[in-house]
Design a protein around this nucleic acid. Structure first.
Lengths: 162, 162
DNA sequence: CAGAGATACTTGCGTTTGCAAGGACTTCTC
DNA sequence: GAGAAGTCCTTGCAAACGCAAGTATCTCTG
């Protein structure tokens, strides 16, 4: 029987490893740049982005948690921090008094707008340029397939239709 | 001028978002399965894997940190935990007495071997099957390009030649 | 309509991580 | 070869997250 090391030289292991490494490398660089240019971590940006694209600039806490890929408790505290910064406010849900909306504030919309150009530039330099237009499109499709397959079992049907 | 929301509907934003979402979705599922079948978090597995593939089943702490994408302090403590489990041992570096090696133990090699089959099965079900053989190969190439580009500025040349 | 069970969100607690600082050693410069 | 500067690793501290439990509210069943 082969050594453990030999059995580890498997293209599947490599593929999975690349997912980890590419994600770590890209998010680290992009996050650093966003923090430098907009004074905002990538998690905050994601929250503002999702709210901005949602009708009424608002989202139920659970839906937002699904979209940013955080646990409910993690999201509660992330939103707390963004609220402290004045970019989001909490609003009660009239139809279901258990529920709460996270709503984008004007300041939040403005902060998102201000961060956007720099973030797009980051993505250009670290993703679009190295990959080219075709590469970007192909990668997006493959990753979407991956995400949908991984969510298939666990997620509540239509969590994020992006 | 367009609304902020409209400016956010950009394929580059989508591509970056997919990287975040696919990574979060896949690693969450795979990590859960690895924890269930091998009683080991993915970070431990990565440490054992890198050591296993390295000459002498050993790696300098800095190199290992680079390969698993952790800060030096993060790696120091991760290795501490894996050492407590008996899968790795620390060894002094004769040529440079500042340095330290992390060395795979027999128990570590065995644990890696035991975890491997289940992990490969996970990757099959959550990556290879949804994407197909061509998709896997294409994805690996694109991600490698991405990683190399992101590291180009920051990393010490030949950190991880995978 | 009363009670059981499900759902939406928050809070307590422990784990993991990064940044900044520190200690030990090496290498470079004069 | 002595001191300055750099490198390798570890430790103090605080931020961010997940799990499990708690509270409030809704919904289903009889």
């Amino acid at each position: 029987m082969a050594t453990t090391a030999a059995r580890c030289n498997d293209e599947r292991i490599t593929a999975f490893g690349m997912l980890l490494e590419a994600h770590a490398a890209v998010t680290q660089v992009v996050n650093r740049e966003l923090e430098a240019t907009a004074g905002m971590p990538i998690t905050w940006f994601e929250v503002l982005l999702r709210l901005s694209r949602s009708p009424g600039q608002r989202l139920r806490m659970s839906d937002l948690a699904g979209q940013v890929g955080l646990s409910h408790s993690g999201l509660t505290r992330l939103v707390d921090r963004v609220i402290d910064a004045g970019f989001v406010r909490r609003e009660a849900c009239p139809e279901d008094r258990r529920g709460a909306f996270a709503v984008l504030t004007d300041a939040g919309d403005e902060a998102l707008g201000a961060a956007l150009a720099g973030h797009l530039d980051s993505i250009d330099r670290h993703m679009a340029n190295p990959l080219g237009a075709n590469g970007m499109a192909t990668l997006t499709d493959l990753l979407r397939t991956l995400r949908d397959a991984a969510w298939a079992g666990t997620r509540p049907a239509g969590a994020c239709p992006t």
